[in-house]
């Protein structure tokens, strides 16, 4: 499988990374180089092999339902590029 330039534009869009038109061709080449190399995985017979879900053999542990966090609005917003009245600010989103 290889990607074409439209696919690269679509992936860039999905990744929310602006890609300049002149970057599309070289990026297509780079991605195809990597994809051609990982293609060798197809040689491996994985019939009946379950995908690895976790390398640790442990059970998911659960916490009790108690309030132990929050109440730190200043810590939450202190690194924000723009805030207003305790909210984060973004360009207007049309629904």
């Amino acid at each position: 499988m290889s990607v074409d330039q439209d696919t690269v534009r679509r992936i860039a869009k999905l990744s929310r990374i602006a890609i300049k038109e002149e970057q599309v061709e070289p990026m297509t080449g780079e991605l195809n180089g990597i994809l051609a190399w990982v293609e060798q995985l197809r040689e491996v017979n994985t019939d009946g092999v379950p995908p690895l879900t976790s390398v640790v053999e442990a059970k998911l542990s659960m916490r009790e339902d108690v309030i132990t966090d929050g109440g730190i609005p200043k810590d939450v917003t202190r690194n924000a590029p723009e805030t207003e009245d305790g909210f984060f600010v973004v360009p207007k989103v049309m629904e």
Partner: peptide, 18 residues
């Protein structure tokens, strides 16, 4: 996360770093 869920709190006051 351990942040509270109560309705109607001040903005970003019931938010953990998670």
């Amino acid at each position: 996360s351990g942040a509270a869920t109560e309705f109607g709190a001040a903005p970003n006051s019931q938010v953990s770093l998670v």
